[in-house]
Design a binder for these strands. Structure first.
Length: 563
RNA sequence: GCGCCCGUAGCUCAGCAGGAUAGAGCAGCGGUUUCCUAAACCGCAGGUCAGAGGUUCGAAUCCUCUCGGGCGUACCA
């Protein structure tokens, strides 16, 4: 919103003798949420503390400059008040709010975009599930979070690329191969080999073994066991990966790139990094293993990179992989982990710091668990024991829209209780439907307006009422303007969600907006006897519709015309 | 033991780069439909923001400690 920027500039202009970098650190102006001003700023108080002086006097001085500021600001700012200990409350003119409606309708799908990301190249890695079993709900939560965050960051001016890192080699794949091998032999009637103690016990692995036996016969039974385990591990992980990618697709998610650890390691990146770290003096040998001095960079202790048996620890590949992200040109690297990898994120953070990457360029998000509740009981899950609720099951039960939305209602740091019965049982009170219904109601009004010849269908563009008659906006009443005011915050909500990596801010805002609209709807008739007011209100609700649609689009949730 | 996260209404959670009287949904109680979709709306009730200190004009928000819950603390991933 230009006016927010204009007022910020006016504040800066009012304080020529103050170091502008000090102002950068302080909150300038935000759209207010109550009736205490359309734009509010507490800046005089923290500033008074920083530069000395009386906050109220400082506020008066700033307010004076905003009042005097002529030109563009003049027609938007109605009055400026100083209240309490030094709050500056700015009330905007009708002219501004009417202009906002026009702006939203003119921008349509582009409304809400901003350049705050400054084209910064960001890589977002999320839901990098091991290809050893189907996606769980925990992955679902990470996937929804990552996908929507990518959408929001793109919308706020970041240059975003998403990636799925596939651990398709190493220890776990070895165990997977071993597990499949035993199941396969069982299917062939051979019971000689015992199932590995920490193997994958899931039913899906049993089926996979049986399937291979049926299709390939004794091919793997006739080769040396070591070779069979390797080959089956590869075969199984490739198959499971294909299933995972299909699951993602069903959930509306497609990473820009799928990055194979197997391929990455084959290219020699790991050896090169190891050598470099050695040259940098970051490693040393002890007890036959190679260690990294992560303890010097924030980790609790040093960590092993190469085990005494000569094999690589998982973290070595992961460090090389993250280092590679920077050589690929990314300026901000974001990675999501489940809570069980918490220790690993600290190690990774330390390692990246040791390699010379400033902490603000690497963000490791820990996404807390998502507990599924069925019949009032929390379900304990474990991939290796084969006891999980798959994402697929959840989608099957509640649908993609509901699942995506519920995953995004809470901040990533919080545990999420996902009560299947509750969501289904109370589907009528479901927040997703509540928001979608608001959109459908507006769509319905627009349809009716078209039927009555109030809107020329030719003027409709992308399903949004964009080019209608905006000459009657002066007819709008206070109640209408109250609704417009909620639309002004959209851009700053997106900016905050993007820069803070907190998509839940968007779902919260959407719920508020939908509530505001439903309230408006039951108290104001859009299509009424007053022709001019009707035109004005059609413009107003269309603007609301634009914001609802844009937000739902970012969430990857369907935007219904009817319900 | 040490580290990170969480502790806000009966339940599930927002609010946290300190800001003006703590919000929403669900559950509970009471209302609203000759009117564009009642999948909605309105009202009532519900709180020592876990507890105790501290920082200051001002703290749910920042600092310290205590208590409670989760997770981590591997030459696993």
């Amino acid at each position: 919103m230009p006016v927010r920027q204009d007022v910020s500039n006016a504040i800066r202009a009012a304080l020529p003798d103050v170091d502008q970098t000090v102002l950068d650190e302080l909150p300038l102006v935000e759209f207010g949420r109550g009736d205490r001003g359309d734009l509010v700023t507490p800046i005089a108080m923290p500033l008074a503390k920083r530069i000395g002086g009386n906050p109220r006097e400082l506020a008066e001085r700033i307010a004076g400059v905003i009042r005097e500021k002529s030109g563009e600001l003049d027609e938007f700012v109605d009055r400026v008040e100083v209240a309490g200990p030094g709050f500056i409350n700015i009330y905007l003119t009708r002219h501004f709010w009417e202009g906002l409606i026009r702006t939203i309708l003119a921008k349509g799908p582009r409304y809400g975009r901003s350049k705050i990301g400054q084209r910064r190249k960001v890589q977002l890695e999320f839901a990098s599930a091991n290809p050893t079993g189907p996606l769980s709900v925990a992955h679902g939560r990470q996937a929804a979070l990552g996908d929507v965050l990518a959408n929001i960051m793109t919308q706020t001016g970041f240059d975003v690329s998403t990636e799925y890192w596939v651990n398709d080699c190493g220890n776990q794949i070895g165990k997977l191969g071993e597990s499949v091998y035993v199941r396969y032999l069982h299917a062939l009637g051979e019971r000689s080999r015992e199932f590995p103690a920490d193997g994958y016990q899931g039913e899906d692995i049993r089926e996979l073994g049986a399937d291979i036996a049926a299709k390939e016969g004794r091919k793997y039974a006739d080769m040396p066991p070591e070779q069979a385990v390797v080959e089956l591990g590869r075969l199984a992980s490739d198959r499971i990966l294909a299933g995972i990618i299909a699951d993602f697709k069903r959930f509306g998610i497609q990473h820009h790139t799928v990055f194979s650890q197997r391929a990455f390691e084959a290219e020699g990146h790991v050896e090169r990094l190891l050598e470099r770290m050695h040259d940098m003096g970051l490693t040393y040998e002890k007890d036959g293993a190679v260690w990294m001095k992560t303890g010097n960079y924030g980790d609790e202790k040093d960590r092993v990179l190469v085990k005494s048996d000569g094999t690589w620890a998982y973290r070595l590949s992961d460090i090389a992989y993250h280092e590679d992200k920077f050589t690929r040109g990314f300026e901000l690297v974001v990675d999501m982990f489940g809570p069980d990898h918490h220790g690993h994120t600290i190690t990774m953070q330390s390692a990246m710091k040791a390699l010379g990457h400033p902490v603000e360029t690497v963000r490791f998000l820990t996404v807390q668990h998502c507990t599924i509740i069925r019949d009032g009981e929390k379900i304990k899950m474990s991939t290796r024991a084969g006891k999980i609720i798959s994402l697929d099951e959840v989608i099957e039960e509640v649908g993609v829209d509901v699942a995506r939305f519920i995953f995004l209602t809470q901040k990533p740091d919080s545990h999420l209780d996902f009560d299947l019965e509750l969501v289904k049982q109370e589907s009528l009170d479901n927040p997703v439907y509540y928001i979608q219904y608001a959109h459908a109601r507006i769509a319905s009004i627009i349809r009716k307006a078209q039927e009555q010849g109030l809107i020329d269908p030719a003027e409709m563009s992308r399903g949004v009422y964009t080019n209608g008659d905006s000459t009657h906006l002066g007819e709008l009443e206070d109640r209408d303007i109250g609704l417009v005011k909620k639309l002004a915050r959209f851009q700053s909500v997106l900016e905050k969600a993007g820069t803070e990596l907190e998509p839940h801010r968007l779902t919260n805002y959407l719920s508020e907006l939908a509530a505001e609209f439903h309230n408006y709807y039951t108290h104001c008739v859009v299509i009424g006897d007053d022709r001019a007011l009707t035109q004005a209100r059609l413009q107003l609700v269309s603007a609301v519709r634009v914001v609802l649609a844009n937000a739902l689009h970012l969430l990857g949730v369907h935007i219904p015309e009817t319900m």
